[in-house]
Design a protein around this nucleic acid. Structure first.
Length: 364
DNA sequence: TCTGGGGTCCTAGGACCC
DNA sequence: TCTGGGGTCCTAGGACCC
C-alpha cells in the first residue's frame, strides 16, 4: 500500500498576511522586509511584485528599483506566528502526523485516511478549502507517495496550486524537471551537474552508482534515488533542536568600539533568553564575524559545562572576538550561536521543547 | 545589484587515545 | 631509527533550506 503524503505551502506567506490585514494592499505589489537603508532584503514578495522580477532574499534596494511602486512593509513576526499556528492546527485536526518545515510549510501523512477508503483528492481539496475559509490564506498543495514528490508537486503548482501525482507516476512526473527542482540540489550542485550534461531530474535518474557518487558525494546514491522517485523518509513530528543563535547586520560597517560591544551584549542577551525559555544551555559558544568585504569567519569555544546566562555567553563571545581583532577591521555582521545543547531546567516553559524546531521565517 | 536571519548537515584536518 | 590503524572529539568552512 503506497503512502499518501501532502505538502502544504502557504503562498507568499508574509506578503499575503499583510494583504489580508490591510485591504488597501490587495492587488498591489507588496514586499516584506527590512529597509534599503539598513541593508534589508526581501523576506517575501506578493505575486504582483514577483511579476517585476522581485523575489525572496533579494536586496531591498534592488527590489524597489525593479518595482518602484511596490509597498514595503516591515515584517511582523508575531502576527505571522499567530496565523501559522492556526494553519498548523487545521493540519493537526486532520492528522497528528504533521511535520512543520517553517512557518508557512508542512508535510502531512494522511495514509491512514486513504487506507480507510478516503480519496487523496478529496482529503487534499477539503484541506485547502478549510485553510482558505478559516484564515483567508491560499495554500498550494502537492500530493504524492513521498515527501519529496509532494514537495515538488506543491512547488510546480504555485500559486494556489493543487497537484496530485498518482502512485507509479513519480519518475515520469519528475523526469522533465530541472535538476534544481530536487530538494538538496542548490546553485553549486546544479552548476557541477550541468558541466557534465546533467540538466534534468531524468538525467540524474539515469546516473549509475559510480557517477552519482562522483558528482554528488556521499549523498549521491540517495539523491539519485530521489530523482527516480524513491524516497522512504518518514513524516517526523518532533525534531531535536541542535543550536540557538542570533546575528545582526549593521546599517553601516562598525569598527571595534562601544557600538560593537553593545551589539554583542544584546545578542548574548537574546540567545540567553531563548535558551532559558527552553530550559537549555549550550556547551559550545561560537561567534560569526562578517567583515566589510563580506569575508565571513566563525570561531568557537567548547566549555566544561553548558551555559545559559547572558553575561557568561557575552564573556566567551568577547574573548573570541578579541582574539580575532586586527587594527583597521570593520564589521558588517556579528552573530552568536550556542550549540551542544543540554537540558538544564526541566520545569522551564518549553522544556522538552529545547528540542523543537519551530520558528523559521519563510525567506529563501 | 550589493548582498538578512534562522537553521541543518557534511567535509576535512588535527589532537588525542588505545 | 622512518613510523599502523581505528575511533572520537574539536574546529572551521561551505552547501543548502526556508
Amino acid at each position: 500500500m503506497p503512502r499518501t503524503i501532502i505538502h502544504a505551502d502557504l503562498d507568499a506567506f508574509f506578503a499575503s498576511v499583510e494583504q489580508l490585514d490591510n485591504p488597501e494592499l490587495r492587488g498591489k505589489p507588496v514586499v516584506v522586509g527590512g529597509s534599503p537603508e539598513s541593508r534589508g532584503v526581501v523576506a517575501a514578495a506578493s505575486y504582483e511584485a514577483r511579476r517585476f522580477g522581485v523575489h525572496s532574499a533579494m536586496p531591498m534596494s534592488r527590489a524597489l528599483r525593479l518595482c518602484p511602486d511596490a509597498v514595503r512593509v516591515p515584517p511582523r513576526f508575531e502576527r505571522y506566528i499567530e496565523l501559522s499556528s492556526r494553519v498548523m492546527a487545521i493540519f493537526r485536526a486532520l492528522t497528528p502526523l504533521v511535520e512543520p518545515m517553517s512557518l508557512d510549510e508542512a508535510f502531512l501523512d494522511v495514509s491512514g485516511w486513504v487506507d480507510d477508503g478516503a480519496a487523496p483528492i478529496d482529503i487534499a481539496r477539503s484541506l485547502k478549502e478549510d485553510v482558505k475559509a478559516k484564515t483567508g490564506l491560499n495554500v498550494s498543495i502537492g500530493v504524492g507517495t513521498s515527501k519529496s514528490i509532494a514537495k515538488v508537486a506543491s512547488d510546480v503548482g504555485k500559486p494556489d496550486g493543487f497537484v496530485i501525482v498518482p502512485p507509479g507516476g513519480e519518475a515520469a512526473f519528475l523526469a522533465p524537471m530541472p535538476a534544481r527542482a530536487l530538494w538538496g540540489v542548490g546553485p553549486k550542485t546544479e552548476a557541477r551537474l550541468k558541466q557534465l550534461g546533467v540538466r534534468t531530474v531524468g538525467d540524474m535518474a539515469r546516473l549509475d552508482d559510480a557517477a552519482a557518487e562522483r558528482l554528488l558525494g556521499s549523498r549521491g546514491l540517495h539523491m539519485r534515488d530521489l530523482a527516480r522517485g524513491i524516497d522512504d523518509a518518514a513524516v517526523v513530528t518532533q525534531h531535536e533542536r541542535k543550536s540557538v543563535g542570533a546575528e545582526t547586520t549593521f546599517a553601516r560597517d562598525l569598527a571595534d568600539g562601544p557600538e560593537l560591544r553593545a551589539a554583542l551584549a544584546r545578542l548574548a542577551q537574546h540567545v540567553s533568553e531563548r535558551l532559558r525559555r527552553a530550559g537549555a544551555g549550550g556547551q559550545t559558544v561560537a561567534i560569526k564575524l562578517r567583515y566589510a568585504d563580506f569575508r565571513t569567519i566563525t570561531r568557537q569555544s567548547s566549555l566544561r559545562a553548558p551555559v545559559d546566562a547572558a553575561d557568561e555567553i557575552a564573556a566567551i563571545a568577547s574573548r573570541l572576538l578579541d582574539a580575532e581583532l586586527q587594527p583597521g577591521d570593520r564589521f558588517r555582521l556579528l552573530g552568536i550561536q550556542c550549540s551542544k545543547l543540554a537540558l538544564l531546567d526541566e520545569s522551564a516553559t518549553g522544556a522538552g521543547d529545547a528540542t523543537q524546531g519551530v520558528l523559521w521565517d519563510e525567506g529563501s
